[in-house]
Design a protein around this nucleic acid. Structure first.
Length: 438
RNA sequence: GCCCUCAUCGUCUAGAGGUUUAGGACAGGAGAUUCUCAAUCUUCAAACCGGGGUUCGAUUCCCCGUGGGGGCGCCA
């Protein structure tokens, strides 16, 4: 069997859609699974301004997702050029073939392709036999001389020797146009695999660029891990057929295959993506997590955090890593580590201050903390426990009020870790201030 | 309107005629654990679109209907 050659052929519109990402992913996975070639081809037959900038959106998103291409812009390859805007001579040559064969005619300046009208049958790798008869001749060259999508798409697939066309189901009805052209050129048909579409989360229809969460760059900006998004995306329309969900990319590559792809459209579920992302976040090595967090804080312009001592920033992030669901929670989750005038949750304050004599407990604790060893969680724990035990109380009777005084909330990492990272000076100063204010 | 396509819990899916009281995951409910909050663990609730066939037997095969999605551009 000849080497598999698949392609991903986006058009530079300035957006990289989540559906495009999955199409790219499935192509890439199939290439990697079979040891084939993943081609990136840019369909820029519409001359638009800022094309370079729009191209970068594609390159950046693919690169971020880890979908490296073997042939294409920047990568080179023996079947270039890989931008349709640079392939005009090839299109002219192929147009001439059709003209010579008498398969074209002009009307109003546009070139039409004369269809055969024969039923077009494909054996789709996902859907099986699909038959459709094209009924009308169609334009392959606009009156301004530029060739049209259906034409260039087929010419490129022929000249780039694409063996498998893995694309969205929205192209299924177009396929009869394409097979008409393949046959007119006397070229063998590629294997088609029409993958189901991704439907928008709420409301009817497929996901479009304007829908919430539709753009890949959004996840990048929000600090998602690309491998989590990839893992989530591959499960939208494909299944390993057992209960596996979280899988390293090597395993996905090994198990991925065309027959494993479903035929049903999948609804995008951001909650499940968030969960997948969390499971990946939890296991990230310290350096990567801290770097991810730093990028996010920088992107959000949280200067109090980014200007903080790097070692301190790192300690705060590592303390928070096991507690959060996503990097975007970090700024709010860690505010009090970086500023002194942190917000105080009134409801929590009222609740905590309502029972017993919290001020007295806090005062005792502060006294004990003056000499405590702040370098060790266990030492701090012992200090709190001992203070509580003196009064026949428990750890919990002390941590709530201490937490309130030091962080202004009841949400956060363990109190001992929080104390350790904040350090004696901050902790005592905040308790003093709190007691003074109360 | 015409054409193509799909149909299992709210969502993503497993299931390829009997092994199914239809399994897993997310979300939701309850509980356990814990210094708070998460995480984690246990647990509960939750689905085979309808009607005909085929068959000893259909979630699984066929047909029709219904519903969803897509396509019918000198967009890609």
């Amino acid at each position: 069997m000849p080497q598999v050659r698949v392609r991903f052929a986006p058009s530079p519109t300035g957006f990289f859609h989540i559906g495009s990402a999955r199409t790219a992913l499935f192509n890439w996975l199939y290439a990697r699974h079979t040891g084939g070639v993943f081609v990136l081809r840019i369909e820029d037959t519409d001359k638009e301004r800022n094309t370079e900038e729009f191209l970068n959106v594609i390159y950046d998103s693919l690169t971020w997702l880890g979908l490296n291409w073997d042939e294409g812009p920047k990568a080179g390859g023996g079947f270039g050029p890989y931008r349709q805007s640079e392939r005009a001579p090839i299109y002219r040559e192929y147009l001439a073939k059709l003209q010579a064969a008498g398969r074209t005619y002009e009307k109003d300046g546009a070139v039409y392709f004369k269809i055969s009208g024969e039923p077009q049958v494909i054996d789709d790798a996902i859907r099986g036999r699909v038959e459709r008869t094209e009924e009308k001749d169609f334009v392959i060259c606009r009156s301004d001389g530029n060739p049209v999508f259906h034409f260039v798409n087929v010419v490129d697939d022929i000249t780039m020797q694409i063996t498998h066309v893995i694309r969205g189901e929205d192209h299924l009805s177009n396929t009869s146009k394409h097979t008409e052209l393949f046959k007119a050129f006397g070229a063998p048909l590629p294997v088609y695999a029409h993958i189901p579409l991704i439907l928008k989360q709420n409301g009817p229809g497929k996901m479009s660029k304007r829908d919430q969460g539709a753009l890949v760059e959004e996840y990048q900006r929000r600090g998602f891990l690309p491998e989590a998004l990839v893992n989530f995306l591959c499960l939208l329309g494909w299944s390993p057929k057992d209960d596996s969900e979280k899988m390293p990319i090597a395993e996905i590559i090994r198990r991925f295959d065309l027959p494993g792809i479903n035929q049903t459209n999948a609804r995008f579920d951001e909650k499940k993506l968030a969960h997948m992302n969390m499971t990946y976040l939890l296991e990230q090595p310290a350096d990567r997590f801290v770097a991810l967090a730093r990028d996010y804080f920088q992107g959000q312009n949280v200067t109090a955090a980014t200007a903080a001592d790097p070692a301190y920033f790192r300690a705060v992030m590592l303390l928070s890593q096991p507690k959060i669901k996503g990097v975007e929670e970090l700024p709010a989750y860690t505010v009090y580590f970086f500023i002194e005038d942190f917000p105080v949750d009134a409801r929590v304050r009222d609740k905590v201050m309502a029972k017993g004599d919290p001020q007295a407990r806090l005062r005792e604790l502060a006294a004990a903390l003056t000499t405590a060893d702040f370098s060790s969680d266990t030492a701090l724990e012992e200090t709190i426990k001992a203070t509580a035990a003196k009064n026949g109380l428990g750890f919990g009777d002390y941590q709530a009020v201490a937490r309130l005084a030091v962080s202004g909330t009841n949400v956060g990492p363990g109190i001992t870790g929080m104390f350790r990272v904040l350090g004696r000076e901050r902790v005592l100063r905040r308790i003093e201030r709190f007691l003074g204010a109360a």
